[in-house]
């Protein structure tokens, strides 16, 4: 890209934490602002420039009919569309509604349910439009975000690992909490990139980066259950920020069926 590429940041159903990671990249922020032209970013600037954009970062999941229309328009406006964070890549924690009756929620929560227009599901961006790159995590990792922008500015592929959190965990020589303490840890089925925040603090990984490639959560939770970890705990462990990611969803459904049978 000869001139500075333009960057736009869009939000759907989410907590804003991922976009804030960009502002949180304090040391790199000036360099980022120098390398790209931040054209549309409601959290960061008062004036917004219209499309088209070179890079579109999309945070959040699709939960309303209006969202479903808006994402189509955004896709048309962006050369590279990047979904950022567990909401955008897997539907987020709000995808728990996929297992429940949304009308029941609406009637319990709102005095005037007739004003609420919502979909019965929370779905990732890639279910609606073609996504070029995914940035995982709840929230995303700022080094990965900077790597993404660096790669796009220089016209190369970003280096994002697809392997397990365990690889990073062992490189950091953290003692495995699963093996040494019998704690159910989702590290072996979760994609690396967070820098092993949780096991380094002597606790389990709860899978906020979503499934790794060739993820096999079924085997892991069956093993944990055989070692006495309660099955309902394992269902909840998988139904977290990435509950909607298909590997985690299928394994949690499978485990749930075995709870009801036992």
């Amino acid at each position: 890209m000869a001139t500075k590429p333009s960057l736009a940041v869009f939000k759907f159903a989410s907590c804003d934490g991922c976009q804030l990671s960009l502002l949180d990249a304090e040391d790199e922020l000036l360099a980022v602002a120098g390398a790209v032209d931040i054209a549309y970013f409601l959290e960061a600037r008062t004036q917004q420039v219209g499309g088209p954009y070179d890079i579109g970062l999309v945070e959040g999941s699709i939960t309303t009919p209006h969202d479903a229309e808006r994402i189509q328009e955004i896709r048309k406006q962006c050369r590279f569309l990047v979904s950022i964070g567990a909401c955008a890549t897997a539907g987020g924690i709000q995808s728990l509604k996929n297992w429940a009756d949304v009308n029941d929620f609406i009637h319990r929560v709102y005095a005037h349910p007739e004003y609420i227009k919502t979909l019965s599901t929370s779905t990732p961006i890639a279910d609606h439009v073609k996504v070029d790159i995914e940035l995982r995590g709840c929230p995303i990792n700022k080094y990965q975000l900077v790597e993404l922008i660096t790669a796009l500015v220089h016209g190369r592929k970003p280096r994002f690992p697809s392997y397990a959190v365990c690889v990073e965990c062992k490189r950091r020589q953290v003692v495995c909490v699963a093996v040494a303490q019998g704690i159910a840890c989702l590290g072996p089925v979760t994609q690396a990139g967070c820098g092993v925040i949780c096991p380094a603090f002597n606790r389990d990984c709860y899978g906020c980066f979503g499934p790794k490639e060739n993820s096999n959560p079924n085997s892991l939770v069956q093993h944990d259950a055989a070692n006495g970890i309660p099955r309902d705990h394992l269902v909840r462990l998988l139904r977290n920020f990435n509950a909607g990611a298909s590997e985690f969803r299928l394994a949690s459904d499978h485990m749930e069926r075995s709870v009801s049978q036992s």
Binding site: C166, V167, P188, N214, S219
Partner: peptide, 13 residues
């Protein structure tokens, strides 16, 4: 392979 997680722990240790 149905049990293996392809997590790499075996090779790392």
């Amino acid at each position: 392979a149905e049990r293996c997680l392809a997590c790499s722990n075996c090779t790392m240790v």
